[in-house]
Amino acid sequence: MNFREALHAELAARRRRNARYSLRAFARFLGTDHSTLSQILRSRRSLSAHMVARFGRRLGLSAAFVAEACQQQIAESVLRLARTKSFRPNSRWIATRTGLPLDSVNSALDHLIRHGDLVMESPERWTTTRPAYA
């Protein structure tokens, strides 16, 4: 289950307990506004690692699940950048462009390569094998 699915599951569970439980109430609980949450749930807006960490804390999710979900979101950010024409196969360049710490970029690269989502074909060419999730 990814983090977006975890949000859907939590909202559904709350609605099973209280049929009148609203998206607005869930957004308030998570500390965000309902339009942002609505866009996230409909995959119209990407989740930042910061959002994952904040929502994860509010929901009391396990630290391991939240850490993995944060890395997943960072990996998606790197993947999105890797699919642009201006992309440079260089961790420092990626860190500068995304505003992420260098170690987070490298962990994300490790994650993407392990999962076969990014291939380091040569020193000048890193290719992606799928689009980034929203």
């Binding site: 630290a63 391991a64 850490a67 993995e68 944060c70 890395q71 170690d103 987070s104 490298n106 962990s107 490790d110 994650h111």
Partner: peptide, 12 residues
């Protein structure tokens, strides 16, 4: 001897 390096571990 061999040289080495340090890389960030995966989360957890």
């Amino acid at each position: 001897g061999a040289d080495g390096g340090v890389w960030p571990a995966p989360p957890g």
